[in-house]
């Protein structure tokens, strides 16, 4: 292990992760934190990722907070987070401004139709990809909750927080029971 990174190094590293990661920053984060800078061992990375996944918020954002906090406290978290989101937020605001200005231009409307269709297809593939390991390892206990989550939102049209509140306690209880049993 190399010495703990400074807030400045954290900012730079997460900035680089942010600008290289299109559509998914996690592989880039792994390359940066484990392979290039050696701030985390592969096991640390997996362990940290599982922590980040069980908390709300994008995994990569949570990872910037956790890695920052461990190396340099609150200032470390702040710098890692700022490095990660600063440039993307500026880029996206610029794009938003261009959209409000040019969304009436037929070519722009056409381009966004194509882009939107491709982006929605991409998310469908992501859904299938995330579902696979879950359904493979324990489909009997997982599938009912996948279906119930989908039905609650799409078929019943219920607000997401309510669906989550209704399903999560039961799903967590079942998961507890399943792990005990195994």
């Amino acid at each position: 292990m190399t010495p703990a990174p400074t807030p400045r190094q954290l900012f730079v590293a997460f900035f680089q992760v942010a600008i290289s990661g299109f559509g998914g920053t996690l592989p880039f984060a792994r390359r940066m934190l484990v392979d290039k800078r050696a701030w985390l061992t592969p096991d640390d990375f997996t362990e940290t990722l599982s922590l980040c996944q069980s908390l709300p918020g994008p995994n990569i954002v949570n990872m910037s907070i956790v890695v920052g906090a461990r190396s340099a406290g609150a200032l470390g978290s702040l710098c890692a987070f700022a490095g990660l989101v600063g440039a993307p937020v500026l880029i996206i605001i610029t794009m938003g401004a261009l959209y409000s200005r040019f969304s009436d231009v037929p070519q722009v409307r056409g381009a966004l139709l194509g882009l939107g269709a491709a982006a929605s297809g991409l998310l469908a593939a992501t859904a299938v990809r995330t579902a696979e390991p879950l359904l493979r390892s324990r489909w009997k206990v997982a599938a009912p909750f996948v279906i119930a989550g989908f039905v609650g939102i799409v078929v019943l049209g219920a607000p997401l927080p309510y669906v989550l509140l209704a399903l999560a306690p039961l799903s967590i209880a079942v998961s507890w029971w399943w792990k005990r049993r195994a």
Binding site: S120, V141, P144, V146, G149, F150, V151, S171, I172, W176
Partner: peptide, 29 residues
């Protein structure tokens, strides 16, 4: 154990929500 149970329990519900998100976007797009 409780952390593993919370993570394991939230995962399928979240996956259901991601499917719902994809459905809603595909329908709009």
């Amino acid at each position: 154990e409780w952390r593993a149970a919370v993570g394991g329990g939230l995962a399928p519900v979240t996956v259901g929500f991601v499917f719902a998100s994809a459905f809603v976007l595909v329908r709009a797009a």
